[in-house]
Design a protein around this nucleic acid. Structure first.
Lengths: 130, 130
DNA sequence: TCTTGACCTGGAGCCCACTCCAGGCCTGAC
DNA sequence: GTCAGGCCTGGAGTGGGCTCCAGGTCAAGA
């Protein structure tokens, strides 16, 4: 009964991902290290693993493709010396996200306008053809 | 030589979509009306078609799934009387987009923080271990 | 001791939104 | 007239990101 680390189900609950997704990420090289196993082969997630998963979840949820997350992970795994490259990667992602945010906000404005038109129309239903 | 309307290639250039995507949207019921054809069977897009395509492009680019765009299209095609339903659909979409924007902004904040850490680290490269 | 249920793996399946043929017709410039 | 090139259709293929499954191992509570 070793108490070291969480089961995959617990890690899933903690991070908001599914166990399947956690395994998929690990297979895909998105973990900083292979998740340690008990003798039975069951994974035991440490707090540091959860911290990493939470980080890459933020990258993913802002639209970073898995291959870029993998690239970033590889850089981090490689240790000191490539910080400039990691910074480049994050900055490039930042630019993409900002552009995307601006576009969505712009288009949402147009949709809001449309919503306004319908609201007006529904407020005075009998005057619309007058 | 009728001058009525643009070819699919011109419509694609105007809207920023591809000809394939325009055909795919039409097949999928995302057009307000079937695009008129010349005797040869070639499509001729009117200005009103482009206006519609630009609208649904905004819906799509804010993340509305195709099935919802189709639903909205069907409502519009059905004519007057279902404005409340259209409004509901747009408002629901608006809520989803706002939630998504907030999430992305939040996560981007965390990424910005990370970027800041790397910037600090790279500014004083020899002091980082001191 | 038994049995329930979490976990394992490799691989197939799924959903979404396009994207790309092949095979054929049409048109317009030369 | 001819021929390059745009357009047509139905359908297959692609890429991304999971999601599910079969078949098997293992641990802990009744």
């Amino acid at each position: 009964m070793d108490r070291t680390g969480l089961t995959i189900a617990e890690a899933a609950a903690e991070t908001g991902l599914t166990a399947d997704t956690l395994r998929y990420y690990e297979r895909g090289g998105l973990m900083l290290r292979p998740i340690p196993r008990a003798a039975s082969g069951h994974r035991h997630y440490a707090e540091s693993d959860l911290t990493w998963i939470r980080l890459i979840t933020k990258l993913r949820s802002t639209g970073m493709p898995i291959r870029d997350v993998r690239r970033y992970t590889e850089l981090c795994r490689a240790g000191d010396g490539n910080e400039a490259e990691r910074l480049d990667l994050l900055r490039a992602h930042r630019q993409v996200v900002l552009a995307r945010l601006a576009e969505v906000q712009d288009h949402l404005g147009a949709i809001d306008y449309k919503i306004g038109l319908y609201e007006d129309r529904l407020e005075r239903p009998l005057r619309s053809t007058a």
